[in-house]
Design a protein around this nucleic acid. Sequence first.
DNA 1: GTCTATAGAACGATAGAC
DNA 2: GTCTATCGTTCTATAGAC
Lengths: 216, 216
Amino acid sequence: MPTSPRSTASDKTRQQIIHVTERLFAEKGFRAMTLRDVTRDAKVNLAAVNYHFGSKSKLIREVIRDRIEPINIERLSRLDDLIELHGAEPVPVASIFDSLFRPLFESDGKGTGPNPALIQMIGRAFTEPADFMRGMHRDFFKELSARYLFELKRSCPELSEETLRYRFFLSISTMLGATIDQVILENLSNGKSKQRNYDRLVSELIAYAAAGFAHS
Amino acid sequence: MPTSPRSTASDKTRQQIIHVTERLFAEKGFRAMTLRDVTRDAKVNLAAVNYHFGSKSKLIREVIRDRIEPINIERLSRLDDLIELHGAEPVPVASIFDSLFRPLFESDGKGTGPNPALIQMIGRAFTEPADFMRGMHRDFFKELSARYLFELKRSCPELSEETLRYRFFLSISTMLGATIDQVILENLSNGKSKQRNYDRLVSELIAYAAAGFAHS
DNA sequence: GTCTATAGAACGATAGAC
DNA sequence: GTCTATCGTTCTATAGAC
């Protein structure tokens, strides 16, 4: 039972399972994604999941963790750069949201462009009702939200603490909603642009959130 | 097999099932909500669901339809009132979003205040990955989005067709995200205000979307 | 219309051979 | 580390008594 062998000799099977899980969880959510789906698509044996990950819950938690952590590190790194760049001045709100949103929409962990399955998986993870998710939200989001609220407060000193929280919550909601509702966008675009334009989407998202957050 | 008996002599059982389903689907989503959960909480027999609704899918579709249709009618009614009120002038963007968002957050179908289970259920319905949902999204949203896009275009004639669609999509995403992510708000509020203040939330949501949508 | 009882299928997990 | 085979559980759906 390898409890945390992040890189063993031959983890091709393990990587295959992770890759397929990411896509299937993004599409279907936790309950509707079965281990039989995963192992069939990954071309590995059903028992391999429990050998490598212990259980379905541990598998999905590990996949989410592996993906969110680098994104959050990148977010805080970019925020630090912005703070240094602006010296004593507060960072513009649009730049703050740029550092918060863009790492998700341009990251596939390999720097080769946006990964739709990853983007949708993050949204799914935060709207997933399963019990085992609750603790994870706090782990991933507590430090991040505190840091971002602190910087947003510097940039918008006229907003009350409570107003800041509402508007930050709405900004996160916009991001998460945008990662999940494919159907709405399809209806709106009437068949045109089946392929999603993430560059345009993330630019619109940043401008939208900045205007919504900082309005008078 | 009563296929569509909207009001038979004794539909107490039927109403009980609908009421419990609304809450459980809102909390857990389609797959995680079992008919055994529903019939236990509703204090009716397991077989009653299939007698009254035919199947689990049909049950959930009917519950969603029964709730969304009156809300959409109310939305369009308020939008018509606004158009009449402003005569030849375009309706202010904030008023348009008021008519779109407020009927969801203040409606419990009986006019006695916001219904958290209903609010969350709508969000769940639109982010639910189950196949049987796909057609419903289009049914409920196609006419509504066309009407709202038309009015928003009148109010913001300087925005291109594509920009209008992106920003309307983001506005819907904000609303849906706000109905689902309870966890985020709990983390942000640090235990204070366990009870959600929907009056404040919907006011912030309308102002946020109006500013995000109409920014230069 | 409401019940009991159960069919029939799928699931997560694991034991044990190789 | 990978496989086959299967256990025990849980689910939706339905048949049939009342």
